[in-house]
C-alpha cells in the first residue's frame, strides 16, 4: 500500500530525514516509534505533502512525492496531526463535515455511524469544537479524517497526554479502523499501546529507520529498546 524509500526532508538548512525506508501493507497496523525529535512527525508530514519530500513515496503503486496535499488525500491517504487541529469555532458536526471529500461514494463510515460509536460526540454535535476535552478532540480529529474514507490513515501520537481510560478507547478505535480494511501508520510514544495493537513496528533514530520487527521480536530486543526508545 505505502512504500517509502530514500526519503530525505529538510527544514531550511537542517537535514531532518536521512534516507528513511519502510512500507505499510494493506490492512496492516504499523507503528513508527522513536524518541522525541527523531523525525517521526516529519516523516508523516512528508507523506501527506505538508513538508516537501525528496526521494520516493509510492502509494498504491503510484508516486505521490511532490504532489499537493489535497491530491494525496484524494488518493486515499488520511492524516491526523499531532496537535489535533480541531476547529474551535466550528461545531462538532461541522468539524466532521470538513472531513467529507467532494465526489465521495459509499464511504466506510457515515456520520450517523460515527455518532453511534461515540455517544459523547453525538451529545455534543452542535457544541463548538473548542470546548471539548483533549480526549474528545482527539476522537473528533480521528473521526473527521475517517469521514474522508481513507485507505490508509496516519495518526501522529493520538494518546499523547491522555488518561489511561481514554487511551484504551483510542486503541479500540484503532482496531475498529483496521477491522474495516484501513491500513494504519501509527506514530507512538507509548510502547505498550504499540506493542499490543501493531502487526509490525519500525524504530527511528536520527532521521533514519534503525530497527524493523514485530511486537514479539521487539520485546526480545533489549539493546534496541534501551538504545533508541527508553529514556
Amino acid at each position: 500500500m505505502l512504500e517509502v524509500s530514500a526519503l530525505n526532508a529538510y527544514y531550511g538548512k537542517s537535514h531532518i530525514l536521512r534516507g528513511v525506508e519502510f512500507n505499510v501493507k494493506a490492512g496492516e497496523i504499523v507503528s513508527l516509534l522513536g524518541r522525541n525529535g527523531v523525525g517521526r512527525s516529519t516523516t508523516v508530514k512528508s507523506i501527506i505533502g505538508e513538508v516537501s519530500p525528496q526521494g520516493s513515496i509510492k502509494f498504491k503503486g503510484e508516486e505521490i512525492a511532490g504532489r499537493p496535499s489535497f491530491e494525496i488525500a484524494h488518493r486515499g491517504v488520511g492524516y491526523v496531526p499531532e496537535n489535533r487541529e480541531v476547529f474551535p469555532t466550528l461545531t462538532v458536526r461541522q468539524n466532521l463535515m470538513l472531513g467529507i471529500k467532494n465526489d465521495q461514494k459509499k464511504p466506510r463510515w457515515t456520520m450517523s455511524e460515527i455518532f453511534e460509536m461515540f455517544p459523547n460526540l453525538a451529545e455534543r454535535a452542535d457544541v463548538s469544537g473548542g470546548v471539548l476535552s483533549g480526549g474528545e478532540q482527539q476522537m473528533l480529529s480521528m473521526c473527521r479524517t475517517l469521514m474522508g474514507d481513507p485507505d490508509m490513515i496516519m495518526i501522529d501520537e493520538p494518546t499523547e497526554g491522555l488518561a489511561p481510560k481514554v487511551v484504551e478507547q483510542i486503541s479500540r478505535l484503532l482496531e475498529e479502523i483496521a477491522s474495516r480494511g484501513v491500513a494504519i501508520l501509527l506514530v507512538e510514544q507509548k510502547l505498550n499501546v504499540a506493542l499490543r495493537i501493531s502487526h509490525r513496528l519500525y524504530v527511528m533514530g536520527h532521521g533514519q529507520i534503525v530497527y524493523e520487527g514485530t511486537p514479539a521480536t521487539l520485546k526480545l530486543a533489549d539493546e534496541i529498546r534501551s538504545e533508541w526508545l527508553e529514556v
Binding site: A73, F87, T145, G148
Partner: peptide
C-alpha cells in the same frame, strides 16, 4: 465551512482533501 476553515488553517484543510 470549508472556506472558513481554509482561511485560518489552509494546511489542515488541504490535508483533508480540499
Amino acid at each position: 465551512i470549508i472556506i472558513q476553515a481554509a482561511i485560518t488553517h489552509p494546511h489542515t484543510v488541504a490535508n483533508l482533501g480540499h
